[in-house]
Simulated assay, not measured.
Amino acid sequence: MSEGTMQRPAQRDQGDQRAKRRGRGLGRVLVCAAAVPVTLIVAGCSSDSGSGDADSGGKSADTAASASASPSPTVQAAVYKSLPKACGAVTKKTLGELVPKGKSGKEGTADEADARSSCSWSSLDNNGVKGSQFRWLNVSLLRFESDTSRGSGEEQAQAYYDKQIQDAQSSAGAKNTKSKAVSGTGDAATTVTYDLKKKEGSFKQQTVVTRVENVVITLDYNGAGLAGEKTPSAESLTKLAEKATKEAVAAVSAANGEGTGGDAGAASPSPSPSKGASKSPSPSASASASKAASSKSPSPSPSASKKS
């Protein structure tokens, strides 16, 4: 075999070896190329997942911040923080006209200086064989404090004002019931009058209900002629009741630093806010207390009737 013949196998062997090396190199390139998309996909998924978590966290934080920033419910503050003493809400001069033979007023047992106050007077003018004139007066004041669950003091007072009028109009045994608005007295005022027949005689009843801001004043006044004395006129009794109510409204204003309200005979407390101004009576409890005090007038005592 010639030298040239021996070189050709060697060249083929070398060529085969170079071809194998090129094949192995190309395989490694393809494997690497195949692996690249997988890496990119994994990296892309990881990136999206992180972005989603960030957005979720951001939304939660925004929601929490929005909730914490929401304003708390508010209600308009009550105008009046104090009440006058009911026994001093009407001047002595006017009391002398309404209950001429009356002694000092009797304070209500459930009075709370800053929330409710009431006072009553009775008078029996004995005219001997001619009979007697009986009078009874009750003044009740109720103040409402603003509350987010029940509304403003003025709104509560208006609701109670309406209820007091309805109660007076539906009094048991009332006859000839009449109602009329009263001008120039508080923010709203109504007088309810009716006749009431009792075993002692015929009574003329006047109920004046007034709202001034967040305070309601209920004034009950009745009169009767006993043992043959003539029955007083409803007109004269109504005029006196409305006069006394105007003085009670002035006393409320004076107790809160507005005006003077009444004369020296009607002692009003200082206008400083009461300590318990934040405590407000519930409308239901207030209504029952006031109704109990005003719906029924006391009858003359047996001893008074015997004198007549």
Rank of each mutant, 00 (worst) to 15 (best):
residue 1 M to V: 13
residue 1 M to R: 14
residue 4 G to Y: 06
residue 4 G to A: 06
residue 7 Q to V: 10
residue 9 P to K: 07
residue 10 A to Q: 09
residue 11 Q to S: 08
residue 17 Q to T: 14
residue 20 K to N: 14
residue 21 R to Y: 08
residue 22 R to I: 08
residue 24 R to D: 05
residue 26 L to S: 11
residue 29 V to W: 09
residue 30 L to R: 08
residue 33 A to H: 07
residue 34 A to L: 15
residue 35 A to S: 15
residue 37 P to F: 02
residue 38 V to W: 07
residue 45 C to A: 14
residue 46 S to G: 15
residue 48 D to N: 11
residue 58 G to W: 09
residue 62 D to L: 11
residue 73 P to G: 15
residue 76 Q to H: 15
residue 77 A to T: 15
residue 81 K to D: 05
residue 83 L to G: 07
residue 85 K to E: 07
residue 89 A to G: 04
residue 90 V to T: 03
residue 91 T to M: 11
residue 91 T to L: 11
residue 94 T to Q: 05
residue 96 G to K: 03
residue 96 G to Y: 08
residue 103 K to G: 10
residue 103 K to I: 02
residue 106 K to Q: 12
residue 106 K to M: 09
residue 106 K to F: 09
residue 107 E to Q: 13
residue 109 T to A: 15
residue 110 A to H: 12
residue 111 D to M: 04
residue 113 A to V: 12
residue 115 A to Q: 07
residue 119 C to M: 11
residue 128 G to K: 03
residue 131 G to W: 00
residue 132 S to G: 09
residue 132 S to I: 03
residue 134 F to K: 00
residue 134 F to R: 00
residue 143 R to D: 06
residue 144 F to Q: 00
residue 146 S to L: 02
residue 148 T to M: 09
residue 150 R to D: 05
residue 151 G to Q: 05
residue 151 G to V: 11
residue 153 G to A: 14
residue 154 E to Q: 14
residue 159 A to M: 02
residue 160 Y to T: 10
residue 160 Y to A: 11
residue 165 I to P: 00
residue 170 S to P: 14
residue 171 S to M: 02
residue 173 G to T: 06
residue 174 A to M: 04
residue 174 A to P: 03
residue 178 K to F: 03
residue 183 S to D: 14
residue 185 T to K: 02
residue 190 T to P: 01
residue 192 V to S: 00
residue 194 Y to H: 09
residue 196 L to T: 08
residue 201 G to D: 12
residue 203 F to M: 06
residue 206 Q to H: 11
residue 207 T to L: 00
residue 208 V to R: 00
residue 211 R to Y: 09
residue 217 I to A: 04
residue 217 I to L: 10
residue 220 D to Q: 09
residue 228 G to N: 14
residue 234 A to I: 10
residue 235 E to N: 12
residue 241 A to T: 06
residue 246 K to W: 04
residue 249 V to Y: 00
residue 256 N to L: 05
residue 256 N to P: 10
residue 257 G to E: 08
residue 261 G to C: 13
residue 261 G to A: 13
residue 267 A to I: 07
residue 269 P to H: 12
residue 277 A to M: 05
residue 283 P to V: 11
residue 284 S to W: 01
residue 285 A to S: 15
residue 286 S to E: 06
residue 287 A to Y: 06
residue 288 S to P: 11
residue 290 S to W: 01
residue 291 K to L: 05
residue 293 A to K: 00
residue 294 S to V: 00
residue 299 S to H: 02
residue 305 S to T: 10
